[in-house]
C-alpha cells in the first residue's frame, strides 16, 4: 500500500491552518525555570520569550496558532535546569506528512 494516499500526495498543506498539520510545541516547567533566557536566545523559530520580573521571570512559548517551532529540542539541551522540552513534534500533514517515526526518546545505550 502506498504510504501517502493520492489526496495527500497532491495536497500542499496551508501552513497556517491548524487543521492541516501541527507545529512543534514545548512544555515549560515554571517551577524550575528561572528565566535566564538562554533558550529564547537560541530558538531558531523565535518561539520563546521571557516575561516577568524577579522571581516571576519565566520563559513562555509565543501564543500563536502556528509557531515556527521545528521541535529541534535545542532549548532542552541548553537548559541547565531541565525545565523545558519538546512535547509535540511537527507534522504538517498531506504532502509533508511525517512517516515512520516513533515516540520521543533519549539516546539509548544498547
Amino acid at each position: 500500500m502506498a504510504y501517502l494516499t493520492f489526496k495527500e500526495r497532491t495536497t500542499i498543506p496551508t501552513y497556517d491552518n491548524p487543521e492541516h498539520g501541527t507545529s512543534g510545541r514545548v512544555v515549560i516547567d515554571h517551577e524550575r525555570c528561572n528565566g535566564c533566557g538562554n533558550c529564547a536566545l537560541i530558538c531558531p523559530g523565535d518561539c520563546l520569550y521571557v516575561a516577568g520580573v524577579g522571581k516571576h521571570k519565566k520563559c513562555y512559548m509565543i501564543d500563536k496558532a502556528f509557531p515556527d517551532c521545528m521541535s529541534c529540542n535545542d532549548c532542552q539541551a541548553i537548559c541547565d535546569r531541565d525545565a523545558i522540552r519538546v512535547s509535540v513534534t511537527y507534522d504538517f500533514g498531506y504532502f509533508y506528512k511525517i512517516l515512520h517515526r516513533g515516540e520521543l526518546a533519549y539516546p539509548r545505550n544498547f
Binding site: L41, I42, Q76, A77, R85, R101, G102, L104, A105, Y106
Partner: peptide, 15 residues
C-alpha cells in the same frame, strides 16, 4: 557558543 548548547536531547525513534 554562548552558554552550553551541547547536550543530549529526546528525539523521535525511527521505525
Amino acid at each position: 557558543p554562548v552558554a552550553k548548547p551541547d547536550g543530549m536531547i529526546e528525539r523521535e525513534l525511527q521505525e
